[in-house]
Write a protein that binds this DNA or RNA. Structure first.
Lengths: 336, 336
DNA sequence: TAATTTATCCAAAACGTTTTGGTTTTCAAG
DNA sequence: CTTGAAAACCAAAACGTTTTGGATAAATTA
């Protein structure tokens, strides 16, 4: 039923060694022999058993995806990353093993975990900036790409969007509409992207010769409720605000709803711009202007790089920073 | 660096065999010996290498998730299933390997693929009712649970929601609001759930002594655009409609937008009820009444059952049908 | 006492590959 | 005809486990 290398060897008349070396492209096999072996292999529909292979060889062809601190507002983000990883990974004939937060609580180190499962490299999402695992990653031999956490190590690097640039795009756009008093609802301080977006917000203001005011900042936690609270608090304490830049679409929806509930017209009284471009941003009323992170390509790039890191020992881990783009919908308009 | 069973054997003074048998709970090990071995194993932080284990033993502790025909409108569905699977699976110390559509196009049969990767059982989503792989699944020895496709086999079964009941809930609710002319926008005919929802729609009408009219049916394809087209066509040809039941939230949003664009007031002129309760259903304006499928528990139940099927040869595959629930929001109201 | 059973333990085989460390064959050069 | 090198091949080891099929010693029975 199950075809092994033995069957190919027997049918082709060569040894197991030669079959293996022929199929793996080694040089010490005669061209005719190789051709014959490949033919027999195809005829029997032989595919090497990955488990057996990864037990003995250093060629580990499964990559691990660690989804840490999963929350429902990451739905789209995670889905798109997985999609990108999956597609890229299967094109290279690699496998994708998914780990949750649990798996790192079994007493195994990250390295042990990977070794035990035959994982050759990993992609990590949802890591907080103060997670102790980061220290291990810096020294680890396991090729690793972190999403949205700026860590570099022997074999570790990161991939992210240009969050600063994204924030600047938002501010530039709002300013171009005539806005001068722009509030900011940020996420929590455990996410690195929040620092970046905050930084971009400040740079954007400076670039446009607008003053930075501490009062215009609210720290939420990426939930819709915190967006509601943020909008209410900012607008109540600063009635002169004509626009709010919100660090995530979920919070932006909260802000939008709250402002409408307070009796304001969005966008005519106050403009809202989000960050992420999640699917639902096109479903709200008014639809949500936002800064788009194109996550699917991030997954593909991450996969491509991790595979390169696994297969090519010479390749040095490099940082990838992807561009964001401005998506204009209905929640922003010129000042009156 | 990496601790193997050899290290435990050497340090404890027993043979590899005894260590293995002690740790795996076999009876032919003295209690004192077992205690000592467990102690040493803990001390060295020994965890067996899963790759080596699954090569030789029949204990396969990774389950495969096949995500076929992935489309962006399944985002929430897939995410929740993966979440449920991940949590349940790691509680049982199993692993989760994800496969895309690609993986079944490599010339391997489903069985071969699983065997090759050490996959002991599988969960399959997104399968179409006419997919040829179904015939293989019916005879396959690999424990398999299909999501939303009614297939039973030697080791295969399925899990789904009670789609008929869900549709009946929707109709009952609309009737209770006074609606008598209720349209239906269905999905495409490759998805089994669409037959069920259609069947439920008809039963719901019959139950409430309302006539079934072919004109009130529109077949879409789960996209927002098809929801728009459906709403326009149904309402234009049947101006007496006061409510539309839509077989998915994405299409429902399309329908909602289109009706508003046509100048109708939702829900006062016409009520809309969706199916799924995706995240964005709470973000639309008006927010969307819908029939909720609680997908996370489905993932957990699927994982629990597949693990039981893998570990207990006596256990016969059983069908699981989960309940839906009615979520009332703003897109439905009593008739005038 | 001898025979049998029971409780412990373990050496070796097995899983399906790749890798190691050769051997044999071929061929060109001396 | 020898020699040396290159080309082609392969037996056995290795990967880290579990499983098989005993072996040994102790306890029980006859």
């Amino acid at each position: 039923m199950i075809v092994t290398i033995h069957d190919v060897a027997k049918k082709s008349g060569y040894s197991i060694t030669t079959v293996s070396r022929a199929l793996n492209g080694y040089g010490d096999v005669n061209d005719k022999t190789r051709k014959k072996i490949i033919e027999v292999a195809k005829e029997l529909n032989y595919k090497p058993n990955r488990v057996a292979r990864s037990l003995v060889s250093k060629k580990l062809d499964t990559i691990g995806l660690f989804v840490l601190g999963r929350t429902s507002f990451q739905q789209g983000f995670i889905f798109d990353i997985v999609s990108g990883l999956m597609d890229e990974v299967s094109e290279h004939d690699f496998d994708l093993l998914i780990f949750g937060t649990q798996s790192l609580k079994t007493g195994l180190t990250f390295q042990q975990l990977c070794h035990q499962r035959g994982v050759g490299g990993a992609v990590i999402t949802g890591l907080k900036i103060n997670d102790p695992i980061i220290q291990e990653l810096e020294k680890s031999d396991v090729p690793t790409i972190l999403v949205d956490v700026p860590v570099k190590g022997k074999k570790a690097t990161y991939i992210t969007f240009d969050n600063q640039q994204g924030a600047i795009q938002a501010i530039d756009y709002l300013v171009s509409l005539g806005h001068k008093n722009i509030g900011f609802i940020n996420g929590h301080r455990e996410a690195w992207v929040c620092f970046e977006r905050f930084s971009g917000y400040k740079k954007g203001l400076a670039k446009n010769n607008l003053p930075f005011k501490e009062d215009y900042i609210f720290y939420g936690d990426f939930t819709k409720e915190s967006g509601q609270n943020g909008a209410r608090q900012l607008k109540e304490s600063n009635s002169e605000l004509t626009a709010i830049f919100v660090a995530s679409d979920v919070m932006a929806v909260g802000a939008l709803e709250e402002l409408v509930a307070m009796g304001f017209d969005v966008p005519n009284d106050i403009s809202i711009i989000g960050f992420d471009d999640q699917d639902f941003a096109a479903f709200t009323n008014p639809t949500l202007s936002t800064i788009r992170q194109d996550v699917y390509p991030l997954g593909r790039v991450a996969a491509k790089n991790i595979i390169r890191l696994i297969t090519d020992p010479e390749y040095e881990p490099e940082v990838n920073i992807l561009n964001t783009s401005l998506i204009v919908r209905q929640s922003t308009s010129p000042t009156k």
